[in-house]
Design a binder for these strands. Structure first.
Lengths: 187, 187
DNA sequence: CATTAATTACACAGGTCGGTGTAATCAAGT
DNA sequence: ACTTGATTACACCGACCTGTGTAATTAATG
């Protein structure tokens, strides 16, 4: 039951916004009473916290070459954009609508962003990149930029543009980037 | 009066979020009656529209070299981040919290993003960059990425990281980038 | 059958929201 | 002094919000 509530809350919160979705709506969507929902989550705030915690997914470990893993991120991003229902980064959205004063939300958002940056950094270190820290940060900028742009534009090709930029940055850092198909049509 | 209302709405909407601020709050903040507010704006939706329209500022024309204008964007960004009260891109935030179904909000957000992209593109064309379209898009990704990252991290140095990445992209496109100070400390 | 735990329906509290109606007040212009 | 228009105070509406209290119902377990 708790799972049903969480996955429904996740869907509605992400799709329509946290403030825009009431607990009644969630309960009604599942077909349970509001009382049952409150038996599993003491407050909406806790439900929001659980929703964000559930969105905190680490990038899966892989045995593929680091370069492919890094560039593959942008391919997964593009598939995510193309999938219906994509509506930006849930953490950025939460911070945007819940305000800066909500420290708990901001904290988990920071943790998520940082985890991705560290994932990039470790792969870059494996590649022997000198300034792995700085380049990792730059790659996250491309990721979040593409997400924000797609949120307002609904244009999945933003992921490809980000990938092209990432290739240039990698190459500039001395990383050998597999040519892969054609580099045309960035947008 | 209309101006007073607009600037107060701007401040509160941007700072606390659109849904989080009621019309009563705005009126109370100014010290006017709610009735007066509704005499100037027929509904909150129209006030929101006016708020976003007011945020739509074009980049000022400049006689400085295109490269400096482009890179200067990131310096202005960093100053914006450092200024207290910065809370991300108002258009992205609005789309995030008002949902995708609100077409009017999305439209103006797209218009704003596109206007910045075109500004980049024109400058790049002046520099003789071959794929000015694509590179302009990539630069906007860096801008929006830095904004999103700063929103959650409160870390103005994200603008510097974006600037460093922009320099690499420009150089890769054959643009001569003035060395400027020291390139260390990207993050 | 008896016990236990979860879930139900349902009413309700206290609050905020966007928005309206109205009659009184105020300020300026002629 | 008279008119005009803006603003005021204030009550009110219906809707929605989070959260609670309660007693009945259901389902599984011993």
């Amino acid at each position: 039951m708790r799972e049903r509530i969480l996955e429904t809350a996740d869907l509605l919160f992400y799709q329509r916004g946290i403030r825009a979705v009431g607990v009644d709506t969630i309960a009604a969507e599942i077909g349970i009473s509001k009382r049952t929902l409150y038996n599993h989550f003491p407050s909406k705030d806790e439900l929001i916290a659980a929703y964000l915690a559930g969105r905190f997914t680490r990038a899966p470990a892989s045995d593929k070459p680091p370069v492919e893993q890094i560039l593959g991120t942008f391919d997964r991003l593009e598939r995510g954009f193309a999938a219906k229902g994509f509506r930006g980064c849930p953490f950025v959205n939460a911070v945007a609508e819940l305000g800066a004063e909500d420290q708990s939300v901001r904290k988990i958002a920071v943790a998520f962003k940082e985890s991705r940056r560290l994932w990039f950094r470790d792969l870059l270190q494996q590649l022997g990149v000198a300034d792995a820290e700085g380049l990792a940060t730059q790659l996250t900028l491309l990721v979040d930029g593409a997400i924000a742009q797609d949120l307002v534009r609904n244009d999945p090709s933003m992921a490809r543009a980000a990938k092209q930029a990432a290739k240039v940055l990698l190459k500039n850092a001395g990383v050998e980037v597999g040519g892969e198909k054609s580099p045309r049509d960035v947008r």
